[in-house]
């Protein structure tokens, strides 16, 4: 049974169940500005994950008593659609969704300059249309791009990527099967320009060496994701021109 699992997750050539190598990311595509009614939005395809994020704000806080006098309130809602998984997901917020909403909010908060908008609120809605493991990382990536699209003052973008352990190998960007059958899963969110980690979770057991390797690998993944986020934003706002041409 164990050997079968090992064979399925990682073969002797270092090829994973979905055909990737141990250092490969899934294909990532980000589109910015997909929700017209929102102040900022993004759609991400992270492998088989499909997530749409809409950002509203800064806007008036309702209920008013939630407002903070010195800074903005960040509200985050992670939600999985009933059709996002193979068996129907109850649309009511589950314990897992409430927790992921919290960790997403905490991972995005350090990148935002919330003191610029006192007595206001920023709402981030993360809707998972199709889930395939690593949806919180994909959600953070899209949310960060959507926040930039909404024109909220940010110190840096937040990029997220997971790393994990499968059959004593540290692999990058764990998918759903690897998450369930693997030995460890470590989602990391990172601000690439400031070189600061904003989220680090670990599900499973790792030795110190494995932990360091896993963290470094996840950060490498985050940096790769950052380039895709940057390209998506640049494409939305500046088309294909990366350099500004001075007007005569």
């Amino acid at each position: 049974m164990y050997s079968l699992k090992e064979l399925t997750l990682l073969d002797e050539n270092g090829i994973r169940s979905d055909g990737r190598g141990i250092n490969d990311l899934r294909s990532i595509k980000i589109t910015v500005g997909v929700v017209k009614n929102a102040d900022g939005s993004a759609f991400i395809e992270f492998g088989k994950n499909k997530i749409i994020v809409a950002v509203y704000g800064p806007r008036e806080v309702h209920p008013k008593h939630m407002a903070l006098p010195d800074r903005c309130v960040l509200r985050c809602r992670y939600h999985m659609s009933p059709f996002s998984t193979d068996t129907r997901k109850n649309p009511a917020p589950s314990r897992r969704e409430v927790e992921i909403s919290k960790v997403m909010r905490e991972s995005l908060e350090p990148s935002l300059i919330l003191s610029d908008y006192p007595r206001a609120v920023i709402d981030v809605f993360v809707e998972v249309l199709q889930a395939d493991g690593g949806s919180r990382c994909a959600g953070i990536n899209a949310a960060s791009v959507a926040l930039a699209d909404a024109g909220i003052n940010m110190r840096d973008l937040v990029s997220a990527c997971a790393a994990g352990r499968i059959a004593d190998n540290i692999v990058l960007d764990v998918n759903d099967l690897e998450d369930k059958e693997g030995d460890a899963d470590m989602p990391v969110a990172y601000m690439p320009n400031l070189e600061q980690v904003t989220l680090l979770q670990l599900d499973g057991k790792l030795t110190t060496t494995q932990f360091n390797e896993c963290l470094n690998k996840a950060i490498t993944g985050c940096k790769a994701v950052y380039e895709i986020q940057k390209d998506a934003l640049m494409k939305k706002y500046f088309g294909n021109e990366m350099e500004l041409k001075e007007e005569a």
């Binding site: 930039a148 003052n153 840096d156 973008l157 690439p192 400031l194 706002y237 500004l244 001075e246």
Partner: peptide, 12 residues
Amino acid sequence: IKRRYVIPGDKI
């Protein structure tokens, strides 16, 4: 410096 396009976090 020349005017250039930036996104949040870019070093100007």
